[in-house]
Design a protein around this nucleic acid. Structure first.
Length: 466
RNA sequence: GCCGAGGUAACAUAGCGGCUAUGUGGCGGACUGCAGAUCCGUAUACGGGAGUUCGAAUCUCCCCCUCGGCUCCA
């Protein structure tokens, strides 16, 4: 099966072929380190975590880089406001990011470069751009000269004339062209600054991503990801400056994820309509949140609301239930082939085919739902075979490797609690036999209060801790 | 204005030329003393209009609406 990806650069679904053999270099824009991450950041992190996992599952050797930008307006405002050094702010929110994403099951990147730790390389890159005539200095500031670029708008598919300059931000009169963007900014009072040939100041917003991605992945690499709002100007500018720097194509596949919305607006810090990962995880299980994020194709926006997350939890519960049933199923002693293996194979194929089609986790999950029904039916029927049970579990393990949405451990229950529960169940069974249902229900409620859920089945009473 | 992504049953999502989809929720059954879980069955769709085709959610054109971007942003 070949992997196909929707490339923003070409607008096409393309077969994924890395630049050099088995190696894949992948860079994703992380966060600005001035505050706790919100659900929009969670969507991005989980999206690219799953994309990275799937590329690895295809057998590629991925070097995954996620950056932290700690020199930009918000970070600077914050460090001034709090009166603490920039490094301290950076460190704090990098720590929080790792905590939040760790809880969401996001596998750590191989490298997490930080903008302020790459000042030397950034200044060198800017100097090179000036030397090559791709950038110019004015009043201690340095601007990238967009008119020197022949292929303007490669990624966003816009022509120079299409732009509405100053749509939101006033045009700086020092720029030769309103579309020129700043590579180096002179400091303002109280701001953190670094020495440079042009002024004491700091880099502009885009240059650090070019410098850091190329430092760790080479001048050309395979995958660059981020949210759709970064296509222009951020990624477009990255391409222009990187290619001006190296004369080589910067990135082969550009992948952009849809945004997290609240109602009809995107979730963002500036709109104030955000939910932090911390507050959402205080209310919902991390696996539920992950499932919620993966239950829509990554290109599409997701509307964040409690009903949707709650429903995601119910839906995931259905799958987990099926997995739990399998984990607790006692196979027959015989190692017979009862034909269920074919169903497992079919489901696994369906899952992989969906993931190969531009990481369609939603479609992949639909295959798991179909499979879960098959499994439930199978387990309720004749005695399942050990071999089939094992192959079902193998499928779930594989899907978990891809999506990380399941729990495999049987809940450990300590013996005294188990004995208490068993005794109560016994008592309830006697009450039921005597048709004393009031008492039976009373015992069931009591167990429920202890966190024990009973299920009366044809195989006897089952119970589990929730 | 320009670029991009969308509009699928009650809701949320897949599908993207013929197989009527997945989850939650309805409704009706099975199993239950009841509940839950599970299984079986069932109803309600493809923004609007033209066109191509034996056949269109799916392709083409036009229109309407929503969201994102056009130098804060995942």
């Amino acid at each position: 099966m070949v992997l196909r990806v929707q490339n923003t650069m070409t607008g096409q679904l393309e077969e994924f072929v890395p630049l050099s053999g088995n190696k894949v270099g992948m860079y994703v824009c992380g966060i600005n380190t001035y505050d706790d991450s919100h659900m929009g950041h969670a969507k991005a992190a989980v999206t690219f975590d799953v994309i990275r996992r799937h590329i690895e599952r295809k057998g590629y050797d991925v070097t995954y880089v996620v950056n932290f930008t700690d020199i930009e307006d918000h970070c600077i405002e914050r460090t001034i406001e709090l009166g603490i050094p920039l490094e301290q702010l950076t460190e704090k929110y990098i720590g929080e990011y790792h905590k939040d994403m760790g809880r969401l099951g996001v596998r750590p990147a191989d490298i997490y470069p930080v903008a302020s730790h790459h000042m030397k390389e950034i200044i060198e890159a800017i100097q090179t751009l000036i030397d090559r005539g791709s950038a110019y200095e004015a009043d201690g500031e340095v601007y990238f000269d967009v008119d020197k670029v022949t292929e303007f708008g490669k990624l966003s598919h816009m022509k120079r004339g299409d732009m509405k300059a100053g749509a939101r931000i006033d045009v700086d009169e020092r720029k030769r062209n309103p579309l020129d963007f700043v590579l180096w900014k002179a400091k303002k009072p109280d701001e953190p600054f670094w020495d440079s040939p042009w002024s004491e100041g700091r880099p502009g917003w885009h240059i650090e991503c070019s410098v850091m991605s190329m430092k760790y992945l080479g001048e050309s690499f395979d995958v660059h990801g981020g949210g759709t709002e970064l296509i222009f100007p951020h990624h477009e500018n990255e391409i222009m400056q990187s290619e001006a720097l190296t004369g080589k194509p910067f990135v082969k596949y550009w992948l952009h994820g849809g945004l997290m919305n609240v109602g009809d607006e995107k979730m963002s810090k500036s709109l104030g309509n955000f939910f932090t990962i911390k507050e959402v995880l205080a209310e919902y299980d991390p696996l539920t949140v992950r499932f919620f994020l993966l239950n829509t194709h990554y290109k599409k926006p997701i509307d964040f609301n409690r009903q949707a997350v709650t429903e995601a939890g119910q839906a995931l519960g259905r799958l987990q239930n099926s997995l739990d049933n399998t984990l607790h199923a006692t196979g027959t002693a015989s190692d017979i082939e009862d034909g269920f293996g074919a169903k497992v194979l079919e489901a696994r194929k369906g899952f992989d085919a969906a993931m190969d089609e531009d990481f369609n986790s939603r479609d992949a999950i639909a295959h798991i739902f179909d499979f879960a029904r098959e499994v439930n039916r199978y387990l309720e029927g004749q005695q399942p075979s050990k071999k089939s049970i094992e192959s079902i579990l193998e499928a779930f393990r594989e899907w978990d490797d891809a999506l990380s949405i399941f729990k495999f451990e049987k809940t450990e229950v300590d013996e005294s609690l188990a004995a208490t529960v068993e005794a109560l169940i016994e008592e309830r069974q006697m009450a039921r036999a005597a048709k004393d249902f009031a008492k039976a229900d009373e015992i069931r409620d009591k167990l429920k209060a202890m966190g024990v859920i009973l299920e009366d089945t044809s195989d006897g009473v089952k119970w589990k801790i929730v």
